[in-house]
């Protein structure tokens, strides 16, 4: 069985983010990028299925600029067998539906039985690309998996709900499933893996290879447009204490006593 993981190269979550000068997104110039956290868990699920013999091939795919190939190299070093990098300057600014059309075009003849994606990208939080790809392929679909188990042509998925509840569903393969963080403990690339990755195939696909025209993608063709980006309203807002650590600690103790009745 052939499997695919969709990965996105995103700014490291532990960064302090600033809005860019155009006021359209965060300023990415000073940020370090990494594999979207959710996607690391998705890759680990496929590698575990491969270890168990249920999956023969694990392919990683990203759509993104030159630098995003580093996300694919991480996947290859961690254990993926091959990688597909869809890259074209005209793709810049594509909305999720446009990206999904591009991914669909890149994979529709591959015959993947199982496609995993992250529940959401940590930057744009669109929470939809996996579902869009499933819809375009007409595959079975489930989101926010906290457990996957394969038996024959059926994939049982435990979906995360709220308040510690899970919804168990059965999907007929082929299927797309998005993965929630915490489903497993992702492995790290070993030195051996990093060496081996250098010999693994990484295919580059541009719009020409996909048979798509530049004006069918990118910001121009996208129907979901960014028109602003700002810090959230502060609400009532906290009283902000200032001073040395000992001074703010003393003020905190006083308030905790008065307002929380603790101490």
């Amino acid at each position: 069985m052939k499997s695919l993981v969709l990965v996105k190269y995103v700014p490291d979550a532990n960064s302090v983010f600033r809005i860019n000068s155009a006021g359209t997104w965060v300023d990415e110039s000073s940020l370090s990028f990494t594999v979207n956290d959710y996607d690391r868990y998705a890759l680990e699920e496929l590698l575990a299925l491969k270890d168990g013999g249920a999956v023969e091939e694990v392919v990683a795919l990203t759509v993104g600029p030159q630098a995003a190939s580093s996300a694919l190299r991480t996947c290859l070093a961690t254990g993926a067998d091959r990688a597909i990098h869809v890259r074209d300057d005209a793709l810049e600014g594509s909305d999720p539906l446009t990206l999904a059309r591009v991914i669909h075009q890149a994979i529709k003849d591959e015959g993947f039985s199982l496609i995993l994606a992250g529940l959401q990208a940590d930057d744009d939080n669109h929470t939809q690309l996996g579902g869009l790809v499933a819809g375009l392929l007409d595959y079975a679909y489930a989101s926010a998996a906290m457990k996957l188990s394969l038996s024959g042509e059926t994939m049982r998925v435990e979906r995360e709900l709220e308040n510690n509840e899970l919804q168990v569903v059965d999907l007929d393969l082929p299927a797309v499933v998005t993965v929630q963080t915490g489903i497993n403990s992702p492995r790290y690339a070993s030195l051996k893996g990093i060496m081996a990755a250098k010999k693994k195939p990484m295919t580059q696909l541009g719009l020409t290879e996909l048979g798509m025209s530049p004006d069918s993608v990118g910001a121009g063709a996208s129907k979901l447009k960014t028109v602003g980006f700002e810090s959230p309203p502060k609400g009532k807002g906290a009283e902000i204490l200032t001073g040395s650590p000992d001074e703010v600690a003393a003020q905190l103790i006083k308030r905790i006593r008065e307002h929380a009745g603790v101490l």
């Binding site: 999720p96 539906l97 939809q128 819809g135 375009l136 679909y141 989101s143 926010a144 995360e160 129907k223």
Partner: peptide
């Protein structure tokens, strides 16, 4: 709703209609 069932089904519907989805 951007709820466990809502984020599950909404993109399938959007893909079925080929319309964009503003989420969350």
């Amino acid at each position: 709703g951007n709820t466990p069932n809502g984020w599950d089904v909404a993109p399938l519907v959007a893909a079925g209609l080929m319309v964009p989805l503003a989420s969350g």
